[in-house]
């Protein structure tokens, strides 16, 4: 009988690991992996929803103080809005545009694949704590890299960056490196590229100084250079960074959805 010495354990482990990686790379373990993922997917989706629910409850509790401050701020804002009655019409117009965006999928007859979020995982490319999302639909469901991902209310939240047979990885639009071709709904129809900013907001850079950007301008996808159609809402301009001695200006965009509450998403397949 062969007795395994403790010192040899790591050697045996290394050999088994090497063999496992080799079998994975040549695809020999793929059927087993796919079967396991298929069995695990429903459970993963449910567990993620439970965890996300806990997260929302925790977040609400934590934000209680912040909400009280927000109420004070909103009271002042209401007073300000009463004075500026004329702006209401503009807001109403914007609301109409947003509602049109929400009906975008049905109006344009895009095929949408609905997917559950299974997990979040550290992003490859950044070290600021941004995390990508893993969904339970993959290549087998018609997904491919660069497709746009919508929240349940029709706002674009990210794009597909990696696909497996039955799962996919999605970068959120607030993650640095997750870029979208975008356009502002202003007079100039300013075009540019949005990029995630610290996992919190979105930044649209390299906008010529001559273009006029206003706060609360709606930012939509421009439909240029990719599989993401034009007209999907990205967010609203919350800040404009413009220096007179600079060639370019940039806009900070506030996303319209809370990414922590996402549990179901739709992927647009053109």
């Amino acid at each position: 009988m062969i007795r395994i010495k403790k010192n040899n354990l790591f050697l045996i482990f290394t050999v088994v690991l090497g063999l496992l990686v080799f079998l994975h790379l040549v695809g020999a373990t793929r059927p087993l992996e796919n079967t396991l993922l298929f069995l695990v997917k429903p459970m993963s989706g449910s567990l993620y929803k439970w965890g996300s629910g806990f997260g929302s409850a925790y977040g609400e509790r934590r934000e209680r103080d912040a909400l009280l401050m927000e109420i004070d701020r909103l009271k002042k804002e209401v007073a300000y809005n009463v004075i500026n009655n004329s702006r209401w019409l503009e807001i109403e117009d914007e609301n109409k545009k947003l509602r049109n965006q929400l009906n975008f999928i049905s109006n344009n007859n895009f095929k949408a694949v609905v997917a559950n979020i299974m997990a979040k995982e550290a992003s490859f490319s950044v070290s600021d704590g941004s995390r990508d999302v893993i969904i339970d639909k993959g290549e087998g469901d018609g997904l491919r890299v660069d497709l746009g991902v919508l929240s349940d209310d029709g706002v674009i939240v990210g794009k597909v960056i990696e696909v497996n047979k039955s799962t996919s990885r999605i970068c959120l639009i607030t993650t640095p490196g997750c870029q979208l071709a975008a356009s502002l709904q202003n007079e100039d129809k300013t075009k540019g590229v949005t990029d995630g900013n610290l996992g919190l907001t979105i930044e649209m850079s390299y906008i010529p100084q001559l273009e006029k950007i206003s706060l609360n301008d709606t930012v939509i996808t421009s439909g240029l250079g990719g599989s993401i159609p034009r007209g999907l809402v990205i967010g609203r301009v919350s800040n404009v960074k413009s220096e007179s001695n600079e060639v370019w200006q940039s806009a900070i965009i506030e996303p319209l959805v809370d990414f922590n509450d996402l549990t179901v998403v739709s992927i647009i397949v053109p």
Partner: peptide, 16 residues
């Protein structure tokens, strides 16, 4: 592994 991958990864802030 399922707990770690799906449940704990969905927690906010320090909990994940």
């Amino acid at each position: 592994a399922i707990l770690q991958f799906s449940f704990i990864s969905s927690f906010p802030g320090a909990f994940n």
